[in-house]
Amino acid sequence: MRYGYARVSTTDQSLELQEETLRKAGCEIIRGEKVSGSSRHGRNELDILLEFLRPGDSLVVTRIDRLARSISDLQDIMRTLEQKNVSLVCTEQPIDTSNAIGKAFLNMLGVFAQFENELRRERQLEGIAKAKAKGVYKGRKQMIDHDRVKALKAEGLGVAKIMRQTGISKTHVYRIINENSEKNHA
């Protein structure tokens, strides 16, 4: 049986085109999700499919980057498919792992997908560095209220009580307290 997997990176993108292509490729069951492909974390629909596939089945995607954006994730997925005796088929790329040519092409595409991902990350970091140099980028807004932690400590509360009242980890509480004492000693 052929099972389809569709993925887009953001919630404002549509899965419709991929789902239509997968139906035309003979997939009766299609799982889709709107989540980043840069990691396997949070990709519940993919996990369900990988668990459900049986020997002789095919997992069908439109393009390899819909399945994985890094070589290590692609290799992990492929190991799972191989252990289950399941082939991978891409509708828009000459990949069908039921034959040697398809397997070779899959490995080449995986390398290029990871390369593209790393280039994008480098460009993003360059943009952030330029924005910081111009004073435009300040980073993410601080999530932990340092003043509250310091006030609770000044009231005589111990680390455990501060953790319970703020929901902040022990490491962060100590970091804030030590940051305060280091400034006083300087």
Rank of each mutant, 00 (worst) to 15 (best):
Y3R: 14
G4E: 02
Y5P: 01
R7L: 03
V8T: 02
S9M: 04
T10L: 08
T10C: 07
D12K: 15
D12E: 13
Q13W: 12
Q13H: 08
S14T: 13
L15C: 07
E16A: 15
L17V: 14
L22G: 06
R23P: 00
A25L: 08
C27W: 05
I30V: 10
R31D: 00
R31T: 04
G32I: 01
V35S: 02
S39G: 05
R40N: 03
G42Y: 06
R43A: 00
R43S: 01
E45H: 09
L46S: 02
D47Y: 05
I48W: 11
L50Q: 03
L50M: 10
L50R: 07
F52L: 15
R54S: 12
G56K: 10
D57T: 08
S58D: 01
V61E: 00
T62R: 07
R66C: 02
L67T: 02
A68S: 03
A68K: 00
S70T: 05
D73Q: 00
I77K: 07
R79M: 14
T80P: 00
E82R: 15
E82I: 12
Q83G: 14
K84N: 10
N85E: 13
V86T: 02
L88T: 09
L88D: 10
C90Q: 04
E92H: 13
Q93L: 06
I95S: 00
T97L: 09
S98N: 11
G102K: 07
A104R: 09
A104E: 05
V111W: 05
N117K: 11
E118S: 13
L119W: 11
R121L: 15
R121S: 15
E122H: 12
E126H: 09
G127Y: 06
G127E: 03
I128Y: 07
A129G: 09
A129E: 13
K130H: 10
A131P: 06
K134D: 13
K134N: 11
V136F: 08
R140H: 08
M143K: 14
I144S: 02
H146T: 12
D147E: 12
V149Y: 04
V149N: 09
K150P: 01
K153Y: 13
A154Y: 09
E155A: 13
V159G: 02
A160Q: 15
K161R: 13
K161N: 05
I162P: 01
M163D: 03
R164S: 15
Q165E: 14
T166A: 08
G167L: 04
T171Q: 14
T171K: 15
H172T: 13
V173F: 07
S181M: 12
K183M: 12
N184E: 15
N184Q: 15
H185D: 14
H185Q: 14
A186G: 11
